[in-house]
Simulated assay, not measured.
Amino acid sequence: MTKWIAGTFRTTDLVLSKGGKLPEAELAYIHTGELAADGSNVVLVTHGYTTGHHFVMPGSLAAEGSWSELVGPGRAIDTDRFFVVSTNALGSCYGSSGPASIDPTTGAAYGDSFPRVTITDTVRLQRVFLESMGVTSLYAIAGPSMGGIQAFQWGVQYPDWTDRLVVAVSGFESPARQGTTERGAFAEKIRAEPGWDGGRPGKGAIVPWLVQLRLHTLREYCMDEALRDQGLSDEDVDARLNELAHQWAEGFHPWSLVSLGQAIGDYGVSDQLSRIKARVLLALCDNDRIFPASRGPELVHQLKAADVNVRFVKIPSRYGHLASGLDWQLWDRELREFLA
């Protein structure tokens, strides 16, 4: 069984790309494996939008696909060989600085006053953290969904730091559906919910709304299909989806949806692809409604036009945005070869 060590890295006065700074910036992390003496065996694993850095561990509720079958001794991301680090993104609510964190200037939770953060800021903090551990380069960066976005951002932001980018169910531009107007309307909808209280909701008043939002996300990501394939009846599928939705809603801060959504909406590196020096493994799913595999050839063409060494893998799964984790066997061999 893989033994993960958890911790929180702290620094002060983190300058943010949208202006301002975080007087106290925290980055939650877990790691496993042994760091090589020359630091040459580090793999950074990055998580999706609505989950956290524990998505690499068994029992994760990751809607973007748990990677517990891909990370571990003898697995594709082999913890007997690699020193594997997984970090929680800025703006999230699983230990890193975000809306649920305490604002040192007020002594209360930031709520919707949490400063605007970007994928660039998260990557910058990840690098500061890794440097504090004595790491000077990365063997690979890997992740699904927003995790893949972080991998591409690493590739353009710190091109000399990594040899390989593993990008699953993701791309180098924000999904088209995350427009500025829609994100603003979403933020206002959250503020209008009962019990919002400036982003410091109490007594679970907003939980029912979060449950319904999560149910929509789980179905969009094809979780219902995965449960039916486990032999569950439609009634049992509905019950299990409700259980998963409630578990998530009880622990996820609603304004993190806005903070991370804004970071994803601000993201886009298509004009910087020529900065990438790393090799890229791009794994997309036929049935993904967010980053469909049908876009693969176009993305590969753009990467090759920028002189990026890229390999494209189509995951022939029915599980859409969950495919990289639920159907890990369908691209495990390609991932192993890429990391070999």
Rank of each mutant, 00 (worst) to 15 (best):
A293M: 10
V300L: 13
V308W: 04
S324I: 02
K314Y: 00
V310I: 13
R333P: 01
Y319V: 13
R333L: 08
W328A: 11
S317C: 01
R333V: 15
R311Y: 02
P292F: 04
E337P: 06
L330G: 11
W331H: 02
D332R: 06
P292I: 09
Y319F: 15
F338K: 06
K304E: 13
R311M: 02
V308G: 14
G325C: 02
S294Y: 02
W328H: 10
R318D: 13
W331K: 01
N309W: 11
E298V: 08
R318V: 13
F312E: 00
F338S: 02
G325E: 08
F338C: 03
G325Q: 02
S294A: 07
E298W: 07
Q302L: 09
L303C: 09
V300E: 10
G296M: 10
E298A: 10
L330R: 08
Q302K: 07
S324H: 03
W328E: 04
V310L: 06
V313E: 00
F312S: 03
D332Y: 04
R336I: 00
Q302H: 02
R333H: 06
K314G: 04
V300S: 15
H321N: 09
V310D: 01
D327R: 03
F312G: 00
A323N: 08
H301I: 06
G296I: 12
V310C: 02
K304G: 02
P292S: 04
Y319S: 06
E337A: 11
W328F: 07
E334S: 01
H321C: 13
K304H: 10
G320R: 12
F338G: 01
V300A: 09
D327F: 12
L303I: 03
L322C: 09
V308I: 11
P316T: 03
N309V: 13
V313I: 07
A306D: 07
I315R: 07
P316C: 05
D307R: 12
R295D: 14
W331C: 00
S317V: 12
Y319I: 05
L303G: 09
